[in-house]
Amino acid sequence: MAAARSLTTCIFCKIIKGEIPSFKLIETVHSYAFLDIGPVSKGHALVIPKDHTVKMHELPDEYLADALPIAKKIALAQGLENYNILQNNGRIAHQQVDHVHFHVVPKPNATEGLVLNESCWPAKTASMEELKAYHAELTTKLEGMGKL
Rank of each mutant, 00 (worst) to 15 (best):
F34G: 05
A3G: 03
V104N: 05
L7E: 15
I85N: 04
L142V: 07
M1Y: 09
I85Y: 10
P21G: 06
A45W: 00
S22V: 07
T28L: 12
L148G: 06
F34A: 03
S31M: 13
G90Y: 11
K107D: 04
K132E: 06
A75Y: 01
N109W: 06
M145N: 11
L46I: 10
E27N: 11
A75N: 06
A33P: 01
L86N: 03
G79M: 05
L142W: 02
E118I: 09
W121M: 14
N117F: 13
K50D: 06
I11D: 01
G38S: 14
S127A: 03
N84H: 14
Y63V: 06
V105G: 10
N117I: 07
L138V: 14
K17P: 12
S119C: 02
V47D: 00
A2T: 12
C13H: 01
A77E: 04
G90T: 12
E129N: 11
N89T: 07
L114I: 04
C120D: 08
K141P: 03
V54S: 02
V29D: 15
N89F: 03
S31A: 12
V100T: 01
H52Q: 07
V97Y: 02
I70C: 05
G38D: 12
L142S: 00
S127I: 04
P39C: 12
M145G: 14
I15K: 14
T111W: 03
K73Y: 00
T111L: 07
L7I: 15
I37V: 13
I74T: 02
I74N: 03
V97E: 03
F34K: 04
T111I: 10
F12V: 04
L68M: 15
K132H: 09
G38I: 08
A133T: 12
C10H: 03
T139F: 00
L138D: 01
N88I: 04
I70W: 02
T9Y: 03
M1T: 12
K72L: 07
I26L: 10
Q87C: 11
E27S: 15
E137K: 15
E27Y: 09
A67G: 09
V29I: 14
T140H: 14
N82I: 01
V54L: 03
K42G: 09
P122G: 15
N89M: 06
L86V: 15
